[in-house]
Amino acid sequence: MNRSLKWFTVGLVSAWYASNIGVLLLNKYLLSNYGFKYPIFLTLCHMIACSLLSYAAIVWMKLVPLQIVKSRVQLLKIATLSLVFCASVVGGNVALRYLPVSFTQAVGATAPFFTAVFAYFLAAKREAWLTYATLIPVVAGVVIASGGEPSFYLFGFIMCLGATAASRAVLGNVKGAVAVVISILIFKNPISATGVMGYLLTIIGVVLYSTAKKRSK
């Protein structure tokens, strides 16, 4: 039973990686290589597809139980989370018009920084100083990667930062590293040694941040 559960979990994680990276690369191809100029409409298609597939999985296939909204407060929280997530996807798609996937994933790796900042100012949640110290290489890595990015575009960079600020989870950075390698192989966008060093520094910072948070708990 445990073995079956293990392989089921591996299958789910693999499917999540494949679908996320696949959508990311498809969006990049449509917005940059194919010349599609409507990232917000692309986001609308994304949201509609997610809604329909979720409805089918819940109502028809019954993969997960149907959850009922029990109060206005809960509805408000769900609506707020939905708007923030939508803004994140829109920002990410707009950024893909101007920046290579490799660079957007490097910026996306700074999600722990925004998580810590928002938790401090909005929820008054304070971490240990060691945890905050691990964020230094996260930010420094992106600064270095920005300086060494041949295709750097300021507006795309701002949109990517906004999308990252509206997103969260450290596990996604592993997916980001895989997406970087695949995107470079497919789109053959130019990269520099400085950019690679910056991205690696950011990933190291994320790993240290995750380790520090676990120890603080």
Rank of each mutant, 00 (worst) to 15 (best):
165 A>Y: 05
72 R>E: 12
81 L>P: 04
32 S>L: 10
32 S>H: 15
151 S>Q: 11
63 L>A: 11
27 N>R: 02
88 S>A: 15
85 F>E: 04
158 I>N: 03
57 A>Q: 02
185 L>F: 11
132 Y>L: 08
88 S>Y: 10
137 P>M: 10
80 T>M: 10
12 L>I: 14
79 A>Y: 01
145 A>S: 10
100 P>A: 04
199 Y>T: 06
169 A>D: 15
65 P>T: 15
179 A>V: 11
56 A>C: 14
2 N>Y: 07
38 Y>A: 11
109 A>E: 04
140 A>P: 03
16 W>S: 10
68 I>R: 00
88 S>I: 06
20 N>M: 10
39 P>M: 04
92 G>S: 08
210 S>D: 14
202 T>P: 07
95 A>K: 03
11 G>L: 07
23 V>R: 11
204 I>Q: 03
35 G>T: 09
18 A>W: 05
62 K>A: 12
127 E>L: 01
42 L>T: 03
178 V>M: 13
64 V>P: 00
83 L>A: 12
88 S>T: 12
6 K>V: 06
106 A>E: 00
184 I>W: 08
188 K>H: 13
161 L>D: 05
141 G>N: 08
123 A>K: 15
205 G>N: 05
128 A>P: 00
175 K>D: 13
47 M>C: 14
172 G>N: 13
152 F>G: 01
150 P>R: 07
208 L>Q: 03
175 K>Y: 13
215 R>Y: 09
45 C>H: 09
55 Y>P: 06
173 N>S: 07
86 C>Y: 05
196 V>R: 00
51 S>F: 11
69 V>R: 04
211 T>M: 14
71 S>Y: 05
54 S>F: 13
98 Y>C: 11
135 L>I: 02
95 A>E: 08
186 I>V: 12
